[in-house]
């Protein structure tokens, strides 16, 4: 076994992890304005404007229509695919009054009680979800 010789090999391996999007440059570039929009919600006055009219607030940002729709739908898996990063997106669900557990559970196909029960029982096992190719 040899390690990555350059950034291509290094990054290539990330696509082999099931149900996981690693926040690489490619994603950071695609999601730039999406993440900056989310970041803007750290200011109380922006949160107020956002809550008053979400669509109007989004239209101030040079985001794709897909990104805007996914924000309005709070479709976090889709937002990850469109370049969102969870720490930035957390400003959106915090503004909604959701905890990390509530928001994160929406990405797993479980409801929040099932997800909490899984966590209380020790969390999701890494068994079988470490690698797509080698399924271990």
């Amino acid at each position: 076994m040899t390690g990555p010789k350059d950034i291509h090999e290094y990054l290539g391996a990330f696509d082999d992890i099931p149900g996981t999007r690693v926040y690489t440059a490619a994603r950071a570039r695609q999601g730039y304005h999406l993440n900056q929009f989310a970041m803007s919600l750290m200011k109380a006055e922006n949160r107020a404007r956002w809550l008053a009219d979400e669509r109007a607030y989004l239209d101030e940002w040079p985001m794709s229509q897909e990104q805007k729709d996914a924000v309005l739908a709070r479709d976090y898996n889709r937002l990850l695919d469109l370049g969102g990063n969870i720490y930035f997106l957390s400003k959106v669900f915090s503004t909604d009054g959701l905890s990390f557990v509530q928001a994160v559970s929406t990405m797993t196909g479980m409801n929040v009680d099932e997800y909490k029960a899984m966590m209380d029982a020790g969390g999701r096992s890494p068994k079988g979800v470490r690698s797509i190719k080698e399924s271990y």
Binding site: I17, P18, G19, T20, R21, Y76, N77, L80, I86, F100, V104, S105, M107, T108, G109, Y115, M118, M119, G122, G123, R124, S125, P126, V129
Partner: peptide, 17 residues
């Protein structure tokens, strides 16, 4: 320590590691 806050694999914990 171990945690994943995103995607279908969220909630992963690896106590052994």
């Amino acid at each position: 320590m171990s945690h994943q806050l995103q995607g279908q694999r969220a909630g992963l914990i690896n106590a052994e590691w």
